[in-house]
Design a binder for these strands. Structure first.
Length: 505
RNA sequence: GCCCUCAUCGUCUAGUGGACUAGGACGCGGCCCUUUCAAGGCCAAAACACGGGUUCGAAUCCCGUUGAGGGCACCA
């Protein structure tokens, strides 16, 4: 039997997902899928103080939006069902998925941590301690005031005997005290830590909950995780985990500590750089495939001479390789995301784009509540497809087709290369040409209008410019004749009449 | 302070001792196309942090310096 690759994303339920966390999740997911393995989620809620209600649901919703299917955790149907609920009680709690043993929420796995912590105590790899936080704080302050390195060791215990029936913590016993602990990391390479610098970390807290260090090792082993992919802020505590695997005698998973995402000023990406929550990107009109493409390339490149930048999801899955993840932190570039989003928009089938655009356009105040309006909108989409970078951009390009426009100033109805009389006449003639056009088709319209320009002895450009201003009220629009065609004869002639009227005063 | 990590165009990166006159992409500038705006095509400017080694040869290996990031909790 071949061991299949299994990765996990293990967020804490402390709020909406940060875009940096999404990137880590994507790396994990791509690693699993590239090797045809499983990707699942586990909620790490061992700190009850930091729990934010509704987080689990929001995290699940993130994956739903991204289009990432979890092989463990709730399925899509469950997600839909819970949308009305404040949280998702029990959803991550059900049995096992595709051979991965649950539950998928750590607060439901307490017996496992207890069992293995006791095993460590019984085998000399851990011990009980009961110093209070205040006592520890005093100890720490004392050590630091002597300019020594703070690191808890069992001889520092204030009470040598701990009554197991009383509240206490379980700490790991770092052994051996000297020597080094090595970590072979897929991203960082070989990293060595002096055991003397690793402290006897708390494994089980006084409240009975495990700390991350114990919980992630126990869970990853029990759930068969083969690649631990996480932020490199975990690198410093990785030797503790290595030690635990050794104590338990468990096979070590592969580790990949991926660098942080930075803001444009080189500091850790945060609110003040712009959007950071994945939902902000969604609400600003970014496509999940563009976000995934962009995030995947932030710190990863196919390498080996392959210079591809734009990827579909399946291309990413095919080409991704966890050992090509870069080891230096990357700056999040909003402008590059914009470009990529535009690329993915242009590659999308028109009907699909129209579907995605609809809620954004409606939110901008354009009602699409009749079949006629919907059809008109459908016809307008091809005109804007290559002109928008986000779904939010669309409304501003087509609003004049659906809503009334303010009076057009006379000045914009006279082209610099034409005088007032010529312009007025040109608009009148345009009105006649359009009124008599048999078919309101862009190609025919353009022919007729070019013929008109010739007849009037004016250049086509200036003529089109004043017509554009007259019928759209804007100097920048999608191609004129396509636009006029979408607007229809009635509105177009109406606006021309208004312009003629304004100019003849 | 101690420990760990990182360092190629403004940004994302390719590069694993000779194929490097350091390649691609975004952005920026220019040109072409063109009814405006886009899109597209072409062209250009733009980088191996610094200092020492090792080597016939270094962006690539080693050491140091500097800078940046992370960690040093009964948080993850």
């Amino acid at each position: 039997m071949t061991t299949s690759v299994r990765t996990r994303f293990a967020p804490s339920p402390t709020g909406d997902m940060h875009i940096g966390g999404v990137r880590t999740a994507i790396f994990s997911w791509l690693t699993a899928k590239h090797h045809d393995g499983l990707f699942f989620m586990r909620i790490e809620d061992t700190d009850q103080d930091r729990h934010v209600a509704g987080s689990c649901r929001r995290i699940l919703e993130t994956f739903d939006w991204l289009g990432i299917q979890l092989d463990g955790g709730p399925d899509h149907a469950s997600l839909q069902a819970m949308k009305s609920e404040e949280d998702y009680p029990g959803a991550l709690n059900d049995g096992s998925y595709r051979g991965i043993p649950g539950p998928f929420i750590q607060s439901q796995r307490l017996p496992h941590y207890r069992e293995w912590a006791e095993w460590l105590v019984a085998n000399g790899y851990a011990y009980r301690a009961n110093e209070t936080p205040e006592e520890l704080e005093r100890l720490r302050a004392d050590v630091i005031s002597r300019k020594e390195v703070w690191s808890f060791r069992e001889e520092m215990r204030l009470r040598a005997d701990v009554d197991p029936s009383q509240p206490h913590v379980i700490r790991m016993r770092v052994t051996p005290r000297d020597g080094t602990t090595h970590l072979r990391d897929l991203v960082k390479g070989d990293v060595a830590f002096e055991n003397a610098n690793i402290d006897d970390t708390v494994l089980i807290k006084a409240d009975g909950y495990p700390t991350y260090h114990l919980a992630n090792v126990v869970d990853d082993h029990l759930q068969g995780v083969t690649h631990v992919i996480r932020g490199d802020d975990w690198l410093s505590s990785a030797p503790k985990h290595v030690l635990l695997y050794k104590y338990f005698g468990w096979e070590m998973p592969k580790f990949a500590h991926v660098p942080n995402v930075l803001g444009e000023d080189g500091r850790k990406l945060s609110k003040r750089h712009g959007a950071t929550s994945v939902f902000e990107f969604r609400d600003q009109g970014y496509l999940p495939e563009a976000v995934i493409n962009f995030l995947a390339m932030l710190g990863w490149a196919p390498g080996e001479g392959d210079e591809q930048n734009v990827f579909t999801i399946s291309e990413l899955i095919e080409k991704f390789s966890e050992d090509h993840i870069g080891s230096s932190p990357a700056v999040f570039s909003y402008t590059k995301l914009d470009w990529l989003n535009g690329v993915h928009i242009r590659r999308m089938p028109v009907a699909e784009l129209a579907r995605l655009l609809t809620p954004f356009v409606q939110a901008a105040g354009i009602a699409l509540d009749s079949p006629e309006l919907k059809a008109q909108f459908m016809a307008a989409v091809p005109l804007i497809q290559e002109r928008i970078k986000t779904l939010k951009d669309a409304a501003g390009l087509i609003d004049f087709m659906f809503t009334d426009i303010p009076p057009v100033p006379a000045a914009s109805l006279v082209d610099k290369k034409m005088d007032q009389a010529t312009s007025l006449n040109a608009l009148r003639e345009t009105r006649e040409v359009l009124a008599q056009l048999a078919d309101f088709d862009p190609t025919q319209m353009e022919h007729a209008m070019r013929a008109l320009a010739e007849r009037l002895n004016v250049k086509a450009g200036p003529l089109f410019t004043i017509v554009r201003n007259a019928v759209t009220g804007k100097s920048v629009t999608p191609p004129l004749f396509g636009t006029i065609s979408v607007m229809g004869r009635e509105i177009t002639l109406q606006r021309l009449d208004r312009a003629i009227d304004a100019l003849s005063r």
